[in-house]
Design a protein around this nucleic acid. Structure first.
Lengths: 143, 143
DNA sequence: TACAAAAAGGCAACATTGTTGCAAAATGTG
DNA sequence: CACATTTTGCAACAATGTTGCCTTTTTGTA
């Protein structure tokens, strides 16, 4: 695992540092997306707030993670699939926000649908956000 | 126009005040969505920041406006259609963010598509965000 | 391995954004 | 018009993001 993390960093021409390894491992070990706040909390007291901001920014630019829009002023981030490279995302899955556990999941198997736009509009990127109850919570609620 | 604004407020059982009239008129006179910051700027020095927050909150609760998620930490708001009432939105249009003019438009004619979720997931609300170039900007750019 | 250059981290100070409590002012109603 | 209720503005605060600068770490190279 530790090897895998270093490989990801190296593949993206990033120097291997403690904070990058730590933050990347948080993403690898957590199903679902993380907000900046989540990361600060999970990382403990180890890193400066500024370092977290800068690391996330770097990961975003390199295409290691992607940002997921939300309606509550707290952007969340999740790992990209392997075929994302710098400045070239292939982010066509949809995002699912569970109202119960408040996790955000990337549903990689669900592809964003085609959208017919009015004349004159040109689409570049499509984001689909679904809000509801996730698999895990559904199971425990109906129990 | 002034009458219309008061009517909207009264229909929602809100007292008619200067700030509510002003903020509502901003929405009525602006094609596209507004962020909190936009409103503060457009309103000039007239209102306290807190009043803007509280007014937006109230409008949201009453179903006069709806929130549009974004990936840049600045929620935008836009007027709801007439058939939205308190706690009961009919918000099935898609949202278009223009990368050129940075406006957000509600494309009321485009209905959110059906999404087939994996087993166990239950959808409650679907938000579609399309990023690209809008009609107006396309025209001026290709010129 | 040692070293210099480059990159990243930490700190402090600051800017922006959002929240809360309370007193003053405006609103709706009889 | 007077009164109860609602809304506003203010002040203080909390949380979140940003910037510059200096120190530490990392990297590539000899």
């Amino acid at each position: 695992m530790a090897l895998e993390i270093k490989d990801i960093l190296k593949k993206n021409k990033l120097s291997v540092t403690g904070s990058r390894e730590k933050i990347l491992s948080l993403f690898l070990n957590h199903e679902g997306a993380l907000s900046h706040g989540d990361i600060e909390k999970k990382a403990g007291e180890k890193f400066d707030r500024v370092t977290v901001y800068r690391t996330l920014q770097t990961f975003l630019e390199k295409g290691i993670i992607h940002a997921i829009p939300t309606a509550d002023n707290s952007i969340r981030y999740a790992l990209c699939k392997d075929d994302c490279t710098e400045g070239h995302h292939h982010d066509h899955h949809i995002h699912f926000l569970c109202m119960h556990c408040h996790n955000t999941y990337c549903l990689d198997d669900i592809v964003t649908p085609e959208i017919k736009l009015p004349d004159g509009y040109v689409a570049d990127q499509i984001d689909v956000l679904v809000e509801g109850v996730c698999k895990n919570c559904k199971a425990s609620v109906t129990k």
